[in-house]
Design a protein around this nucleic acid. Structure first.
Lengths: 126, 126
DNA sequence: ATAGGTTCCGTACCGTAGTACGGAGTCAAG
DNA sequence: CTTGACTCCGTACTACGGTACGGAACCTAT
């Protein structure tokens, strides 16, 4: 039985973030037991899922839908969301990889030992 | 010699975005020639750099600094920004790759043919 | 039983990156 | 020489994901 402060700490977020997620419908707002609301392990699990899904690029609205789907039967929709995100992630990863290579080159060409120009603007031209 | 509309189109952004970048100091505001400002290839190059750098995860403020560095002599600082971003990109790419794998697994396990549970919440637990 | 730390709740505010609005000026074609 | 599209400019508004404020209620240790 966790207070909101302990709950927030368990998910490495702030108390205000918990309240924000509750307003957005991502987390339940448990009943008060003498003025104070209490949270359990299932809530922590849910909160951690939210953070992971966020890192995967889902918006809070999409995450809300995923959490709803988890309770329901609609495998098709869940699959849809997952495969769409996989495609988006593949594209994003490729894009970041290209940017990473361009910047790695820039850092090397702009190294201490090197002379010549330090082609910042040109670094992405490749 | 491009008008702002042509310039914006050359960088695949809206006219308002150009003005926004000018306010933020990312793009110059050329002198007016009879009421209308005109842009050249160097501006287009700069604008394209901004979009690429943005895709690489730089904020507009960092991009502003990069553009300043390009004009100056401070190789050390440019190198610093580039290597820091390479490290950030490597971390981000690894994170997205993990998320991608988790979602790929979810999509498979949640496939049409499969029975069993469709473990959305559990998908990131691995 | 009282002080200090939390919690509760509504409301307001923040940074980032734009996007929209509206009136006045300008320019090119008919 | 007017019409319609585009430009100029300031100001306001948007979406997203939080973060902060402030007064009242509550809980714990002394």
């Amino acid at each position: 039985m966790l207070t909101i402060g302990e709950f927030a700490a368990a998910g490495s977020v702030g108390v205000e973030t918990i309240r924000f997620y509750q307003r957005r419908g991502l987390l339940r707002t448990p009943a008060r037991e003498g003025g104070i609301r209490h949270y359990g392990q299932e809530d922590v699990r849910r909160l951690r899922f939210i953070r992971q899904a966020q890192a995967a690029g889902f918006t809070l609205e999409e995450i809300r839908e995923l959490l709803e789907l988890d309770a329901g039967e609609d495998r098709r929709r869940a699959r849809e969301l997952a495969t769409a995100r996989v495609a988006a992630l593949d594209a994003k990863i490729a894009e970041l990889q290209r940017a990473r290579d361009a910047l790695g080159r820039l850092a090397r060409e702009c190294g201490e030992g090197s002379t010549g120009p330090c082609p910042i603007l040109a670094s992405f031209d490749v």
